[in-house]
């Protein structure tokens, strides 16, 4: 289609910036749901890298199929969705136990 004039490095820079922002969020936020959101940022940044390298790769070959790189990103999306579901469930359980969503308060495995 269009857009051949965008260098690959632009997508990579965007992805690394989003990844760094997500990393900052994971480290700085104390609310567990905010940490989960920051993890989503990082997973999306990784997805952009996957698709960008697929799109700019030389000669995928006729047997590789037209969406070989997209498949990997779809797996990541699936895992991310499952991870959010499990993560929210865990956070809700912890919230019931400690009455707080602060990750610093979750300091005991046995409760």
């Amino acid at each position: 289609m269009t857009g051949g004039d965008i260098p690959l490095s632009w997508f990579l820079l965007f992805a690394s910036a989003a990844f760094a922002i997500g990393l900052f969020g994971v480290l700085a936020r104390r609310n567990a749901i905010a940490v989960l959101m920051a993890i989503e940022l990082m997973l999306n940044a990784a997805n952009i890298n996957l698709v960008a390298f697929w799109r700019y790769s030389d000669s995928p070959g006729p047997e590789a199929g037209p969406i070989a790189g997209v498949m990997l990103a779809i797996f990541v999306i699936t895992v991310a969705a499952a991870e959010v579901a499990v993560g929210i469930a865990l956070i809700l359980l912890c919230y019931r136990r400690w009455h707080a969503a602060d990750v610093d308060r979750y300091d005991s495995l046995a409760g």
């Binding site: 289609m1 857009g3 051949g4 004039d5 965008i6 260098p7 690959l8 490095s9 990579l12 697929w54 799109r55 700019y56 790769s57 030389d58 000669s59 995928p60 037209p66």
Partner: peptide, 16 residues
């Protein structure tokens, strides 16, 4: 291989 920073490096696949 093509450089990552080049603007004219978008080959392959189903694409131009």
């Amino acid at each position: 291989q093509s450089s990552w920073t080049g603007t004219a490096t978008r080959p392959g696949g189903v694409n131009p």
